[in-house]
Structure formats: C-alpha cells, structure tokens
C-alpha cells in the first residue's frame, strides 16, 4: 500500500512554494516517513524553522509549527525543548539559514547536545532571495553575487556539526530518497542533538547559473558525488577527490542537555 502522507499534511496548504525540480519536497516526504516510522504523536511534536525556501516546510505539516526569523530556528527550538523536554523537537532549514546567519545558534545547539533533530537542506545557495552564494556554494561556482566565480571557501556542515559536539551526524542526498527517512528516523531516536544533512538541488537559482542543463543532471551529480562511508574506507584519497561521504558519519553517547538540567533541578532542590 502506498504511504499515506495526507495523515501528516495540513489540508488546503498545498501546493508548496518550491519550484519544479527542487529537492525539498523529496526531503519533506523523507521527514514525514521518518516521523511515521518513529510513531511520533503529532500534538507532542514541534517543527521549527528559520527563513528560506526549506523553512516554509512547517506550514505544510500538521504539528506544532514555528516558522521563526532568519537563522534563529535552533535558538527558538531550544526554548521550546527546555520548557517542555517531553516534546519531540525537529528543526528544518537551509544551508544559508543554518550556517551563515544562524551559524552561532547551530554550533551551540550541537555543543549542548540538546535532544533535537536538525534536518538541514543543503542546496548550496540562497534560493528564496534569488540565488546569492551561501557558505556552502562551491568555490568557483556562480551565484547572483559571485558572477565571476565564488571566491569563498566552503563549510562542510557535517564536519562542523561533529566538531561542535553533535552526537549524531549523518548525510545523504535528495537522490537517495529512501535513505533520507532512515537517517532522520535514526536521528530522532538518538538521544542528543542529531544533524541530518540532505544535499539537495536548486535548479532555478543554482543549476541555471552553473550550466546544469536539467534537474536530472543535478540529481546525477548528487548521485555520483555521494560515497557511502563503508565504501570510502576502501578508496584512495585520489578517488575521494570531489566526493562527499554519506550515511552515519558520527554517533556517540554523551550527556544530553535537558537531562543535565534535570540534574541541576535536583541539586537545587537539595535532593
């Protein structure tokens, strides 16, 4: 039987704002399947976003949804989670939202290892504003503000998350649709801050300027650049040039923030 997405979608809120060929819809469907897999109660789940194309996702789904200000999703979500640790809190957003204007909130959410799941849709560009370069736009590539080629080095979001202290970090792509929900589900089940980076495509503002002739070509790129972690261990540095690792990149058990704060409460009460 086909999966019933309608159970989680708000009636009357589609069509979404995403362009034809955008991978965000694939990622959203993956998120919904993951939530279903984990059996999360809709009323006990908050989905929090910032600003940008990906950040419009919460409006379409039937949960406690919070569309905040640019870059601030993780900080708002931290407030929700601290106030009600029993709630499932999922953050969604793009690469610019999460790692440029929201970079500070992102790394500190990772550092606290607060039990939330951050799904970051990395489409290598600021899509909503018309294709300006983000911290994830490949060096040399073109954006509306880098017509001569992007001079900036790139953030590796997953490495950033691991370095900042997130206890579960995984990466996949919009091409690998069935892996998206598996990794998000694993992230939701993991106690602590989970980051799932979904490499994505923006045909309208990134593909067009960088000589991708079709969405299929962009998906092919995602397919060929992805190398599963296990396969990578058998490859040479030369073979890994220009590739990105996919799958679970990091997983560790360490103290979770709300549990740590519950201990603070116990100590304050003199127990």
């Amino acid at each position: 039987m086909a999966f019933d997405y309608d159970k989680y979608l708000r009636p009357g809120k589609l069509p979404h704002i995403w362009c034809p060929g955008c991978g965000h819809g694939i990622a959203m469907k993956g998120l919904i399947r993951a939530i279903d897999t984990c059996g999360l109660d809709k009323s006990n789940t908050a989905i929090v976003s910032g600003i940008g194309c990906a950040s419009r996702l919460p409006g379409y789904v039937d949960f406690n949804t919070l569309h905040t200000a640019h870059g601030r999703a993780a900080a708002f979500a931290t407030g929700v989670k601290m106030a009600k640790p029993e709630m499932n809190v999922i953050v969604v957003g793009g690469d610019g939202d999460g790692t440029a204007i929201g970079g500070n909130h992102f790394i500190h959410a990772c550092r606290r290892n607060i039990d939330m799941t951050y799904v970051i849709f990395n489409n290598f560009i600021y899509g909503m504003t018309g294709g300006q370069f983000s911290p994830c736009t490949p060096t040399g590539h073109k954006a509306s503000t880098t017509v001569y080629g992007n001079p900036d080095p790139v953030f590796d979001i997953s490495k950033l998350a691991i370095g900042a202290g997130a206890s579960f970090v995984a990466r996949t792509t919009a091409f690998h649709a069935t892996q998206i929900d598996k990794l998000i589900a694993e992230g939701i089940k993991h106690k602590g801050l989970s980051v799932i980076e979904v490499l994505d495509d923006c045909p309208t503002t990134y593909g067009r300027r960088n000589k991708f002739r079709s969405v299929i070509e962009m998906m092919e790129r995602l397919k060929t650049m992805a190398v599963p972690v296990a396969a990578a261990s058998k490859m040479t540095a030369e073979q890994l040039e220009g590739k990105v690792l996919t799958g679970v990149l990091h997983k560790e058990e360490k103290p979770e923030y709300c549990e740590q704060y519950a201990e603070v409460i116990k100590r304050a009460k003199g127990a």
């Binding site: 908050a46 919070l66 905040t68 900080a75 708002f76 931290t78 407030g79 929700v80 909130h105 704060y261």
Partner: peptide, 20 residues
C-alpha cells in the same frame, strides 16, 4: 538557560513562552 548570544536569549524565551 544562558544562551550563546542576546538574540538567542530572546529566541529562547519566545520558544519557552509558546510552550506555555
């Protein structure tokens, strides 16, 4: 909660208030 900056502090109280 001591947040990472002033903006985050403001964000956290809005999130907390929305959660009751």
């Amino acid at each position: 909660i001591q947040m990472e900056d002033e903006i985050a502090a403001m964000a956290s109280i809005i999130g907390g208030a929305l959660a009751g």
